[in-house]
Design a protein around this nucleic acid. Structure first.
Length: 330
DNA sequence: TATATTTGACCTCT
DNA sequence: AGAGGTCAAATATA
């Protein structure tokens, strides 16, 4: 355990160093990136040691933690550690980091699949408005589908529950309605498609796809898409509904170093009221006052699973600027 | 009766 | 042409 603490300390020191050098490093993205690498590596080391320990102590009641689903490019930043870290001292630093990150991401347009195509597509669909008469049986059913494949996608890995309904990933705080299932080529398991239950009522465009990993059926890959515009859910699922440990990997497609390594959770703790916790589930859980101050450090589990890690949306949307969000609003 | 899920067909994109 | 995403009728469930 001591080693774990040492690793965390080391990471904290690195953060402090980074904080001090920040003004100089702003213009040196590569150096900055390396520095962030070091920090995440330190946290990852702590995490791995923790896992070793927990593997010995683990009982069946706790959900499995993701072991090594990360790629070298996607170091795992453990939620618990991050939360602790955030609480200690570095929130504002990370705020700055994130602002920089966002600028960098925007300029390079490397974040995931967001890109020029979104515009291109919307133009195309508007332009082709007329060609809807289609299909053999379409008289009363002008199906004009827009494949929203170019929307921002956010992937996370979630362990399957060890008991109860193991066919479904854990509650994420939103209510979803399944609208399809598909066998995916090359995948052992089918992919399920869900949309927000409140889609009709609130024109909520949030969607998610759920699929088991080929090589590990105990882990779901959940891909969130679209924004929750429904402000329906009355309560936030408390952290009891989704154990913090179940936050596994942010696989936000962005593969550039900085953004892939700084979990969105960092950001959510730092941007007060930025679009905020859209929804919480209609079921249970205490609604918590999440934003206590001007620049609060939010409880990470709360942020991830209430405001929407869940919907990937809300949490993840912190990662990207509100301005960008507007672009996919219809 | 209302709402959710299943599932085959359809649509869009590559 | 094929894969992936979505629609919507049929069916199940509360």
């Amino acid at each position: 355990m001591e080693e774990v603490i040492n690793s965390i300390h080391r990471a904290s020191e690195l953060v402090q160093r980074l904080e001090q050098d920040l003004p100089n490093m702003v213009n040196q993205p590569r150096t900055l990136s390396l520095s962030i690498d070091e920090i995440t590596e330190a946290f990852t080391a702590a995490k791995e040691k923790l896992l070793l320990i927990s593997q010995h102590n683990q009982t069946s009641e706790s959900p499995p933690m993701l072991l090594h689903e990360t790629t070298p490019q996607q170091p795992l930043m453990d939620a618990t550690l991050m939360q602790e870290w955030l609480r200690t001292s570095h929130a504002l630093t990370m705020d700055q980091l994130f602002q920089m990150q966002q600028r960098a991401a925007r300029s390079s347009m490397q974040i995931g699949e967001m890109g020029g195509r979104e515009v291109e597509d919307s133009e195309r669909s508007m332009g082709s408005e007329g060609d809807q008469g289609q299909g053999i049986h379409a008289p009363s059913r002008p199906r004009r589908r827009s494949r929203e494949g170019n929307q921002e996608k956010r992937k996370i890995l979630v362990p399957a529950p060890q008991f109860g309904n193991t066919e479904m990933p854990p509650e994420d705080g939103f209510t979803w309605r399944k609208y399809g299932q598909k066998e995916i080529l090359g995948s052992k398991y089918p992919r399920s498609y869900y949309r927000c239950t409140h889609q009709k009522l609130y024109e909520c465009q949030a969607k998610k796809m759920v699929q088991r990993l080929d090589h590990n059926a105990n882990i779901f890959e959940v891909t969130y898409r679209g924004k929750h515009t429904c402000h329906m859910s009355s309560t936030a699922p408390s952290s009891s509904s989704v154990p913090l440990e179940q936050l596994l990997v942010d696989m936000t497609q962005s593969s550039n170093t900085i953004s892939s390594q700084l979990s969105p959770s960092v950001n959510l703790s730092l941007l007060p009221g930025s679009g905020g916790p859209a929804a919480t589930s209609g079921r249970g859980g205490a609604s918590t006052s999440r934003f206590g101050g001007d620049y609060p450090v939010v409880d990470m589990a709360d942020a991830m699973f209430n405001s929407g890690s869940s919907s990937g949306n809300n949490s993840m949307e912190f990662l990207f600027s509100p301005a960008e969000d507007k672009s996919d609003a219809k």
